Amino acid sequence: MMAGTNRLSGDGTMDAEQEVPDRPLPGVVRTVTFMVLSFPLRILQFVLIVVGAAVGIGTVVIWIGIPILLGTTALVRWFGDVERRWARAMLGAPAADVEKLRVEGSWLERWRFRLADSVTWRDLGYLMLVFPLGVLEFALGLASVILVPFAIWVAPWLGWLHAQLAEALLGPPRTQRLAARAQRLQASRARGVDAAEAERRRIERDLHDGAQQRLVSVAMSLGRAKSKLEHDPDALRELIDEAHSDAKLAVSELRDLARGIYPAVLGDRGLDAALSAQAAKSPIPVEVTVDVEPRPPAAVETTAYFIVGETLTNIAKHAGANEAVVKVWRTEGTVIVEVTDNGHGGAEMRPEGGLAGLADRAATIDGVITVVSPPGGPTVIRADLPCSW
């Protein structure tokens, strides 16, 4: 874990339940600032692009227009990157910078490639569309400064709608998004396989070091008892008692091992009862709130159960906390697990460490682990687990 915020995922980000499906509304101040300060930028972009395109096309027959068009094309791409960063900073639009392919060849060949690139035309479409939109947003932004109710209730929705537009036109093309998602899924599955293999080795080790040794001891005790069956009744009684004790221990260890693979209470009564049982065993007080109806798939329940269990174990061992809170709730397509403690914070993410194990476990079902742990605490560990694939 690192101080601050870390996101460990097998896919992308997912947000808590909101009235909108994808992300929360941007803040009022950020939205109004965006609408007002964007207007000069919109004017500059529109004038430079329209004038550049008009002059370039008008003079292309005498070759002067070609460098003008080349510069205009570069401006379109540059302004597109500016808009991505601006929308992401102010509105939270996840319009990440698109992948820029390096093309070899002359400047004319590189320009022709840019003209054929869908990103260029999507950037241009956005820049032309937001000019008239910017005029309206500027007026509404000024109205928001005067009319506080308008700013509180309407401006955030306008910002959210603009963020949707930015994501649609400025985000990576669909093929690039699908390729990136396939790459993340491949990495997620690989981590899931590694986590399953580590779990298999743990079970094998526990069987070998625990129940197997107990059963061997039972067999040896019974063998010795058999040899004393007729000649030494007192020693026979002691050996049978010893075998009986070892058998009970073996049964207990096998029960604990089976509970570690899949707890019966989770299958029978669901997450609420299972997590409450975990909390009751914690050495520090743990408050549990669960609201996941309708009941999520078994794989999601199991992942949530073990994430909470491992997190509570880490808190008890390392956090220096005297209380913890577990909250689990469900949006339409996601189960969100959030564990908070009042410990000293400032934890670090280490390879093969506990949090890396949580991320690997979440990655098996395309889940995301987010960690916030500033020095001095509190520490918040959140898992976003998709319920449909």
Rank of each mutant, 00 (worst) to 15 (best):
A347R: 08
A89C: 07
N342I: 11
D246P: 00
V290Q: 04
P283C: 03
R255M: 01
I64W: 02
L115A: 03
L70I: 14
L75H: 06
A74Y: 13
W160I: 05
N6G: 02
A166D: 06
K327Y: 00
M90S: 14
Q186L: 11
K281N: 15
A143T: 12
A258G: 02
S373G: 04
L91G: 13
S245L: 03
E19K: 14
R224T: 02
D194K: 09
K317Y: 08
T72L: 08
A273E: 13
V337S: 05
P94T: 00
R259C: 04
Q18H: 13
I336A: 08
K100S: 06
L358K: 03
L207H: 00
S245V: 03
W107M: 13
M14R: 11
A74V: 12
V60S: 05
R181S: 08
R224Y: 04
H244Y: 03
R202E: 15
G52S: 15
S118T: 13
P386G: 14
D366I: 06
G353W: 00
S38N: 14
V60K: 02
A363F: 11
S118I: 14
E17W: 09
E167M: 12
S144V: 03
P173Q: 03
G320W: 07
D209V: 09
A3N: 10
T33E: 09
L75E: 05
V36G: 10
L108S: 12
K248H: 09
A54R: 12
W111P: 07
I261D: 03
P233S: 13
T59P: 04
E167A: 10
E310A: 12
V339H: 06
W63F: 11
Q183F: 04
V148Q: 08
T289G: 08
G10R: 01
R200T: 13
I64M: 09
A243T: 01
V76D: 00
G159H: 05
E197R: 12
G367T: 11
G270A: 10
V154W: 01
E137A: 09
D232S: 07
R205S: 08
A347N: 07
R110V: 01
K327E: 14
W111E: 12
T311W: 00
A250P: 00
L133W: 04
R30P: 00
E310D: 15
E167C: 10
T5M: 04
L161Q: 03
G65V: 06
E17Y: 01
V154R: 02
D256G: 05
T59L: 15
R112V: 09
I381T: 12
Q213E: 09
R295N: 06
L222Q: 00
K228H: 10
M2T: 10
R259Q: 08
A219S: 11
G309V: 05
S38I: 04
V218H: 05
G58T: 01
R102H: 08
E199A: 15
S106D: 10
V148T: 10
V286N: 04
P374S: 08
V328R: 07
I315F: 01
R85G: 11
P386Q: 13
L266W: 15
I152P: 00
I261T: 06
E137F: 06
G260L: 05
V36D: 07
L91Q: 13
R30G: 12
L127Y: 06
S227F: 12
A195H: 13
D234P: 05
E301Y: 02
K317P: 02
E348R: 11
G134P: 00
P233Y: 14
G333M: 04
A225N: 02
G346M: 07
L161T: 01
G367A: 11
L8M: 06
